[in-house]
Design a binder for these strands. Structure first.
Lengths: 231, 231
DNA sequence: GTAATTCTGAACGATTTCTTAACGCAAATC
DNA sequence: GATTTGCGTTAAGAAATCGTTCAGAATTAC
């Protein structure tokens, strides 16, 4: 599965140039030559990264960045002829992940794309709240907001579900008590984990066959909880 | 809570320049003027971001990037006088998050730091992290906070894990008893290493096939402990 | 307004982890 | 060869952490 990259650039020669480089380095390439097409292709084709020229005929590239950032953290690498510092700052603060000024070397472009792509893989075993998490007889359906054990629906309360979903998103990782507290009870929560312990007891009574010997959610004493890894 | 930024730069004038800018923009600033200090400050002070000059007197900046990337995804922004494309590619592929060539504008520096910091706060709950330390059948997964021997999970306690992780970060180097004591039991600890010896015995019972002839963690009599180097 | 559900804090027991102390052994020193 | 020093090992008590229950408060549903 090669990364899918959308190249947004109005000048055909440059667009072809970039596309050729990317294809030669085993990326899958999509092309757009104006802002309208670019945005609709982002929403419909879900590229892994966007190479964006700021100077487009129909709309400002800045507008695209802002529109995308309203709902997605999709990596955006700006490629622009504008060398002014003000332009760079504006684009980066709007949410661009990198800013290269023309002309640029091909190997630097590739390196910066790799860097931008790396960021998405950093914290993302399953960062998105979509799809279904499965581990043994347990399955967490993020879309339907339901947790099943051996096909049976477990009737979790709001907070109980939040805890399980959070652990499921980062299955395999230890999440500290404070992290979970802040995620579920807000940023100011922390210090006293009593509530979390009570909730965990209730969760285990519903999920585990034998709550004293958990099969899905494990305790790391002094640290936090850990969800069993996905199958 | 201001972001804590470590500035690694040997030339005092530039270091002061950057620090002043950062302080004026409400960052907390730490400074290091060589590679040795830089790396130990990273491990002990846990900054939120590192601004790194590649040309250091005692060691190459590249080495720092690689060392840190072995266990952490802490953002690193390289600031260098080297304008060669090859240098940029090398640094970025080693794990740097951005590369700026001197001279640079202050507002662009700030914008790129904000961008780099933004990446850490996207999705990832706990803290920084990434990477797995491997040496023979031993692997320390900093990300998941887990230690495996031949694929088997070893159930380490809080302090036991801290010791192993600390040794793993400095694999190949001898860490004195006092250093480890202070790292695990706080700055005021030291003097009596009894606790450390007990912990090491327990660790070895869990990690080593034959605790009397260790394969991973070695004792340097009169000095401290040393983790076997990574593969 | 009542009933049901969910949330929260306190109490308590059980388990895990931490710490201290004592002892054994090997290497170094006298 | 005896003594000292440094480290590993074991065991047991102390301390901290965690799971569980329960009752009352808050919220939601009817």
């Amino acid at each position: 599965m090669n990364p899918k990259i959308l190249v947004v650039e109005d000048e055909r020669s440059i667009r072809n140039f970039i596309s050729t480089i990317l294809t030669a380095n085993s990326f899958d390439v999509l092309e757009a030559h104006n802002g309208q097409d670019a945005y609709s292709m982002i929403t419909s084709h879900c590229p892994d990264l966007v190479v964006l020229d700021l100077g487009l005929p129909d709309m400002d590239g800045m507008k695209i960045i802002k529109q995308v950032r309203a709902w997605s953290s999709l990596p955006i690498v700006v490629v622009s002829a504008r060398v002014h510092e003000r332009d760079k700052v504006e684009a980066l603060d709007a949410g661009a992940d990198d800013y290269m000024t023309k002309p640029f070397g091909t190997s630097e472009l590739l390196a910066r794309l790799r860097t931008a792509l790396r960021h998405t893989h950093v914290g993302v075993p399953g960062t998105e709240e979509r799809g279904v998490f499965r581990a043994g007889g347990l399955s967490v359906d993020f879309d339907k907001r339901r947790v099943l054990v051996d096909g049976e629906d477990t009737h979790l309360t709001l907070n109980e579900y939040r805890i399980v979903a959070f652990l499921g998103r980062f299955a395999g990782k230890v999440l500290t008590y404070d992290t979970i507290m802040r995620e579920v009870w807000g940023p100011s929560a922390g210090g006293n984990n009593q509530i979390l312990r009570v909730n965990m007891a209730n969760i285990r009574r519903k999920l585990e066959k034998n709550p004293a010997a958990p099969e899905y959610i494990f305790t790391e004493v002094g640290v936090g909880y850990r969800m069993r890894e996905a199958d």
